[in-house]
Computed example of a mutant assay.
Amino acid sequence: MTILIVTDAWRPQTNGVVTTLEQVVAGVRERGTDVEVLEPGRFTTLGLPGYREIRVAINPFSVGRRIRALEPSAVHIATEGPLGLAARRYLARHDLPFTTSLHTKFPEYMRARVGLPLRWGYAFLRWFHQPAYSTLVTTERQREELAAWRLEHLRVWGRGVDTEAFFPRARVEGYDGPLLLYVGRVAVEKNLEAFLELDCAGRKVVVGDGPLRRSLERRYPDTEFVGYSYGEALADWYARADVFVFPSRTDTFGLVMLEAMACGTPVAAFPVTGPLGLVTEGLTGALDDDLAAAIERALECDRSACRSFAESQNWDAVVDRFLEDLETIVWPRADLPPLMATGSQR
């Protein structure tokens, strides 16, 4: 049995979508099931304008042929980009079953970048995900928000963190006052300026890169921009920080918050979708429309409580829910020929 995942987000991109899919693929394979990933690296790609590190397929015309050749037992479409669109078109046209997942607030991203009205973005999401047997979402709150925009067949998936890679380390002093850390893309949708413009005690450090980095470095010379970090170097930054600051208002989850907590670092954020599903006020961080106030309260949190919460969020449960979703919807048809040889009975 082979599961096919179609995604426009894959290595070498650095983001929560890629991390989630990598963990799911590894977990499914550990359970003895084959997984194939149809991703941009198998196609001719072009970097997005202003965001060259994100490369998208510009010749997705062979997606249907590739699906036919693989004869998967189940298909999951993870993104709404060119590959996801091509796979959706092929599977829907041939009445073949598939599931999808929704990882980002795409309409909010498009409004921030190009001014696209929200209702247009959500109309697109409704159209894209409507033929799917189910759509996996990150949290119950995201499910409620999407349902309010009339998306259907939504199932809560969740997220996890690798607590063996991210764990508390010896604190390294070297800054006057608290170290306030941000990790992620340096891009407009991350609302990073809401953090950088704060007049609060401590040293601000930004780990990550993106199209706004150069302009923000010029405008905020007192902030330390260190570029991307990975592995132990990234975990060291999390562990050194006194507070992890998450200024985004458009993320559906925010894996970086879990990674910070796994290293014992509390989170300060706005009370919006992603943080509301993760941060417990006074325990693992603080939420406030006044981000500086959230930082002050987060500084008082017990770091061991952050670690304890992170230990309860594991990838095994996420992989299990992914497989359960496919089992419920597709796998009971195991007595039928391979997926490509039959049509949907929906």
Rank of each mutant, 00 (worst) to 15 (best):
P107R: 08
Q23P: 09
D8T: 01
D209F: 05
L4C: 15
W127I: 13
V206C: 05
R55I: 02
M1V: 07
E327C: 01
L154H: 01
G285Q: 09
A241N: 14
G202P: 06
G184C: 12
L291D: 12
F246C: 06
A74H: 10
D242T: 03
F246K: 00
A268T: 00
T328R: 01
F167H: 09
R169V: 07
V206G: 04
S312N: 03
E189L: 08
R93N: 01
V137M: 08
A298G: 06
V188F: 05
T104R: 09
Q313G: 13
G282A: 13
R111I: 00
L283P: 00
R88Q: 14
A92L: 08
P97G: 03
G177E: 14
A298K: 05
E144T: 14
Y90W: 15
I3Q: 04
A170Y: 00
V256P: 13
P131G: 13
G343T: 04
L278A: 10
L299H: 04
G81R: 03
V114H: 11
V330Y: 12
C200A: 14
R89V: 07
P60D: 10
A293S: 15
P271R: 00
E71C: 13
G158S: 02
A170V: 03
D290T: 07
A294G: 08
L212I: 02
A262I: 02
V330C: 11
M110G: 08
L291R: 11
I77M: 09
E36T: 02
G343D: 03
Y182Q: 05
L258G: 15
L234H: 04
